[in-house]
Design a protein around this nucleic acid. Structure first.
Lengths: 112, 112
DNA sequence: TTAATACTCAAACAATGGTTTAACTAACAG
DNA sequence: CTGTTAGTTAAACCATTGTTTGAGTATTAA
């Protein structure tokens, strides 16, 4: 084992501030962006042109929304020539959703 | 006209449209509303005045945001006299988050 | 009744945000 | 070089939204 780097640098934070979570939810709050995320969740990795074509939106509109998703750290970008392939940051997404799931874990008890 | 309760009105939908999910995420996208939801997730059931006091916001501001949460069906309201007690629709919340969780179920592989 | 509490509503304002359009850079093929 | 593809940027326009403020309704208590 080599000396391990800072845990924070590799492992995403286990807890989020309210503002951070609100920012992630805001990135998912628009139908167009949500369709982008759903498409990437299903297809895995797609270029901007592929996403624009499959969602029937302009490339400029995708680029506009991708900035919001990247700034929320939900989108990861890999470059190959003049093409940029986008994929989902599933770890961050799951952590954010799980943070919520842990709050009310117990099923609602109807018995008095 | 006679309004009979459709089954959809009673049984929560097992799947969501993109617009429905975007609406729920939009309700969680504001820090103030997210704090309301987090507080209710922790405390269970609170009146509007209690929420406004604990979050240090005006009652009018809570009322304003509660409309958004109610319209997203995330907030359930029970009335007792002049007091309205708010609680979280945990079923809807979990269903919406689980819908996302099912997309990329396999844990992220960190090994390079 | 009067007064206090709990909540709702609406106007006003500033700020943000989604979409389109057009111009722009960067990479590749001929 | 020219032309094409992939992507970015910015302006403009319109719509939505978060917050404050003040007034209004409803319930309860004295």
């Amino acid at each position: 084992m080599t000396d391990r780097p800072e845990p924070e640098a590799i492992i995403a934070p286990l807890s989020f501030s309210t503002e951070q979570r609100a920012k992630i939810f805001a990135a998912l709050a628009d139908p167009t962006r949500l369709r982008i995320v759903e498409l990437l969740a299903a297809e895995g990795e797609l270029s901007g042109s592929q996403i624009a074509t499959q969602l029937d939106i302009s490339l400029a509109l995708f680029c506009h929304h991708s900035r919001t998703l990247v700034e929320a750290d939900l989108l990861q970008v890999r470059r190959d020539g003049q093409t940029k392939y986008n994929s989902l940051n599933q770890m961050l997404l799951h952590q954010c959703l799980n943070t919520f799931g842990q709050i009310g874990e117990q099923p609602p008890d109807v018995s008095s």
